Simulated assay, not measured.
Amino acid sequence: MATRTSSHQLILLAVALALVAGLFLLPKVIVKPKEGKGELAQDAARTANRDNGAAAPSVGGLDEHGHAAGSHDADGGATPEQPHMTIAPAQRQELNTLLAKYRTTADPMAKLRVASDLAIKYKAVEKFDSAGYYLEQLAQARPGEQAWQRAADAYFEAFSFAATQERQKLLAAKCQELYGKVLKNNPENLDAKTNLGMAFMASANPVQGVVLLREVLAADPRNEKAIYNLGLLSMQSNQYEKAVERFRELTKVNPSNVNGQFYLGVALAETGAKEEARAAFQKTKSLSTDPSLTAAVDEQLQKLN
């Protein structure tokens, strides 16, 4: 968990630097407004797992290795888009054994049990698109709100860290499909609606994403994920005063929300409220001892001098 937190805070550092410089932000958060909301990727609340662009699994079957088609290389090693995402030999062997068993198992119930094992193993090695594929197989066999959400959430993990716009859009489409099934079972599932809203931000219909997020806030005015993501969207469109409002609201709902405090500081700095920004950054530092977060905050504090 510490490693995942550290990775997340490193992203925050890069995001902050790029935002202040007016450059593209990492795909996980925001891009320049003139490029359009279609290129917005999500920093979903709670998400700290990296998938670094595991390929979009908009597939109808397995490839010759038993993966979601096109999702990984043949042996589970590094790929050009995710050079550090390798699978340890012991884990690779476990996966190979399960994949072979999945391909050769004829009994439907036994096959589903293997699919469940594969989903667990793929999540353990942070191959979230492949985990989503097998969870989708389970949902198709035993449909229901929870089953569809497990599959959708796995794809959303991959979507949240997609490394390219192409993969992001394809993964977003998969999220839209599966969260749509969740909401068909339960239209009041606010977590699914929030993630669906963010998936729409990478589609040709980003306005629908904003509508969904506002629907979540109408139902639950204290919903942290919806407030946070609407704050990011305000920053994406250079509405920094509105972003300040959103992040202030978030930090009132949960004063310990580290990301909310950090982005409140960034938004305040953009409006010229340097002293308030400095206070928000100091509060951010007090909430975490993560060295990469400290470095990100110190970088921002230097810019306020």
Rank of each mutant, 00 (worst) to 15 (best):
R4F: 08
T5C: 10
T5H: 12
T5M: 13
S7W: 01
H8Y: 11
H8T: 14
Q9A: 15
A16G: 15
L19S: 10
L23V: 08
F24N: 06
F24Y: 04
L26N: 02
L26M: 10
K32P: 08
K37T: 13
D43E: 13
A44T: 05
A45G: 07
T47Y: 12
N52E: 14
G53W: 00
A54I: 04
S58K: 03
L62A: 06
H65M: 11
H65D: 15
H67W: 08
H67F: 12
A68Y: 03
G70W: 00
D73K: 08
D75V: 09
A78W: 01
T79H: 02
Q91L: 06
T97G: 15
K101Q: 15
Y102D: 14
T105H: 06
K111S: 11
A119K: 08
K121D: 11
K123T: 13
L135R: 07
L138H: 06
G144D: 13
E145G: 10
Q146Y: 02
Q146P: 09
R150P: 02
D153N: 07
F156A: 04
A158F: 08
F161Q: 05
A163P: 02
T164W: 00
E166D: 12
R167H: 10
K169W: 00
L170I: 02
C175G: 08
L178S: 04
K181H: 03
L183I: 03
N186S: 15
P187Q: 11
L190R: 10
D191T: 09
D191C: 00
T194N: 08
T194G: 09
N195G: 03
L196R: 03
G197P: 11
M201V: 01
M201F: 03
L213K: 02
R214L: 10
E215Y: 01
V216M: 05
V216Q: 09
A218W: 00
P221A: 07
Y228N: 14
L232Y: 07
S234C: 06
Q239N: 13
E241K: 11
A243G: 12
V244Y: 07
R246D: 14
F247M: 03
R248H: 12
E249P: 04
V253N: 07
N254A: 13
S256N: 15
S256P: 02
N259E: 13
F262E: 07
V266E: 15
E270W: 07
E275T: 11
E276V: 04
R278D: 13
T284L: 07
K285W: 06
S286W: 02
L287W: 05
S288N: 14
T289G: 15
D290G: 09
T294K: 12
Q302Y: 05
L304A: 09
